[in-house]
Design a protein around this nucleic acid. Sequence first.
DNA 1: GATAAGATGTTA
DNA 2: AACATCTTATCA
Length: 182
Amino acid sequence: MSILKRDFYSRNTLEVAKELLGCKLNRKLNGRVYSGIIVETEAYTQDDPACHAYRGRTPRSATLFGKPGLAYVYFIYGMYHCLNFVTEPEDTAGAVLIRALEPISPLSNTNGPGKLCREMKIDRELNEVDVTTQKSGLWVEKYLEIPPENVITTGRIGIKAAADYPWRFYIKGNSFVSRGKA
DNA sequence: GATAAGATGTTA
DNA sequence: AACATCTTATCA
């Protein structure tokens, strides 16, 4: 049960995205802890046309320039939230989108970024909370080691800009990844 | 199985 | 007007 500390997040976004696979996401709610294994992620960086921080700092994207190890939660398509973790040192933007979980405790339907937020009751109140401490009610622990040959890399999903960047990662053979192209 | 459309509100 | 989505409907 070792919680991932700030120096884990304060690195290259692509590496963090890969290494988050197999880690355990925990959400404390009403005295209960909900958990799932991260099985699918996507990377977004400052130089990336698809990133919210691409055109600089705005009220929404300010979180991405903040401290690594914070949560970045945004609202999309009028009804869904998406959960990211801020990466790179402070003042450099970057984030990893959590796209899918394999449920452990009382969870189901977590095979997509919008769905897992609904299951875990993640909304904008959790934007900018510190994910490196249990006190925030949202934290990540080291859990499984995923050997590199079991990490599949593909283009990202659901975006138009820079859709060809091979910045989506998922665990080979896992049945909880979201709709996937190979 | 694939593809299309609709729901819905925040953002710049 | 676009959007880092999901569900339902309509084909096959």
